[in-house]
Amino acid sequence: MTEFLAMGGYWPWVWGSYAMMAGVTAVEIAQLRFRRRRLWQWLQRMARLSRQEER
């Protein structure tokens, strides 16, 4: 296992690449989720307000 993690002594470069790939995709997915949820909540609040006005 340590041998695998050492990557023949190239671990900083190999894992640095794979970690950045994982990090970037994770941030993109999280940002998309956050943006959608915030928009959705705001739209629902707007819909509620307009329904109250109708009443």
Binding site: I29, M46, A47
Partner: peptide, 29 residues
């Protein structure tokens, strides 16, 4: 990821459309 982003973008653009209002009542985010 691109489809997800496009979906949010559409929702933002069409927020006053009737179909958005329908989905707001029936759907979870």
């Amino acid at each position: 990821v691109v489809l997800a982003r496009a979906r949010t973008e559409i929702l933002e653009r069409e927020r006053r459309a009737r179909w958005v209002q329908e989905r707001l009542e029936s759907e979870k985010p």
